[in-house]
Write a protein that binds this DNA or RNA. Structure first.
Lengths: 233, 233
DNA sequence: CGAACAATTGATCCTCATCAAACCTTGTGG
DNA sequence: CCACAAGGTTTGATGAGGATCAATTGTTCG
């Protein structure tokens, strides 16, 4: 795979970067390719690099001592991840990054970004935009987990995932495909794959979705929104 | 109440500010005092100001359509809150800030901070440090809520609150006092005040805490840590 | 074709939320 | 200084919502 600097401008943080800066970052980058299921980094590792996903998809997850996992977010092409180490030198990754399919990412030393931040306001702004977004999303999800029933939570999760990793099907404007297993959805909504399976089966009966192996097809987004908003007994 | 600029240096973001900057921010600040239970701002309001708590205590909370609440964090003296609007101009507050006791805060226009960020790298760094901290804390709490049982979650919450708003009792190094009601603890751990009451009663029986009206006294932090870590059948 | 793995489905049970009622603490006004 | 009101807290009874477990049924791929 070959990259040219302008590609980097698809990364939100680099949107306003100068060509020289793009060149500079690219010259610092190492390409890392990992297989499906493999890890870019593990929770607790020293956060020496931050990453930019170039191809494939990955997820950020946390697991507790008993091995129970939760999905914090899904990472798409041209998204940055593992960047906390640039803000707090010496920090460790608070989560694990695992590839959902064969994936490639640019790895750049956190210390390099850390230095760059000192002289480039646009990077600061970009990073802060990202971070405020994460804070808001986590706060919302936390509230949902604490206050909403599973069906509603699953609806909210599916809709959120659709906006993040969903692909509109050509031809039909309204159908969105999610390449995620029941287990993935369960870990993103704080429940079990059994419950997700049952809920999807019920939705399928009502014609809201089509559920396949490691795949969810949303046929009627509006109906899901109704469930997500609780307008549905 | 009268403030001098040097007080502002107790705010983490201003730790490395110049005297002139402190003076400048102070000159932009309005003092707002609210009674117990009153609000600095409500979820959904335009985020025109950010705040620095000068005295008292407050909490950041989110509530859903049904009125169910969750506590996102507790705010102490010299902590900043409501600063998201400085990063995204035109944003609304994603949460509500409510005083837990009669409280006073400095209010400064978000737009002013937004401008200041452009020319003051130390502010950017300070803000990002804060934000990464919030992200990590929310991610942890999210995982806990998704994967841990109530007793353990309450233990984790009480310990976290102790480190944030607890006051060491003079005389006894090991005793920490929390001025929080059962309801507060419940909203911070994602459960109900009934369950918190039962759990605290059990802990009291075991000599771990003393539970009073709107008050929790931790007698044996180490014992709580054991519960929090699950070393306890 | 068979192994490996995802998904389904049913049966069971347990943790907690919910509701109701009583109890305690604190502050207030007579 | 007592009595009462208001609001926090406790406790018990009940039941529902999901987790868990086991067994079966797809699906994919070598």
């Amino acid at each position: 795979m070959h990259l040219n600097p302008a590609d980097l401008r698809r990364v939100s943080v680099f949107r306003e970067a100068t060509d020289e800066d793009l060149q500079l970052f690219l010259s610092q980058a190492i390409l890392r390719t990992v297989e499906e299921g493999e890890f870019f980094f593990l929770q607790g590792d020293p956060a020496v690099f931050f990453y930019i996903l170039v191809s494939g998809r990955a997820k950020l997850l946390q697991s507790n001592a008993a091995g129970h996992q939760v999905n914090l977010r899904t990472i798409n092409e041209w998204q940055m991840f593992g960047a906390l180490g640039a803000v707090k030198p010496g920090a460790v990754y608070p989560a694990t990054a695992q590839a959902l399919e064969p994936s490639t990412a640019l790895a750049i030393e956190s210390a390099f970004l850390h230095e760059a931040l000192k002289t480039r306001p646009y990077l600061n702004f970009g990073l802060m935009q990202l971070m405020t977004g994460y804070i808001q999303e986590m706060q919302e999800r936390y509230r949902e987990l604490a206050t909403e029933r599973v069906e509603r939570r699953i609806a909210l999760t599916v809709l959120r995932l659709a906006s993040q990793v969903g692909k509109r099907l050509a031809g039909d404007e309204m159908m969105i495909e999610l390449p995620l297993s029941r287990q993935d959805v369960a870990e993103a909504s704080g429940t079990t794959m059994f419950t997700v399976s049952r809920v999807l089966a019920e939705w399928e009966r009502r014609g809201l979705v089509e559920a396949g192996r490691e795949r969810v097809l949303i046929r009627n987004p509006h109906g899901l929104v109704q469930i997500a908003e609780g307008l549905n007994p």
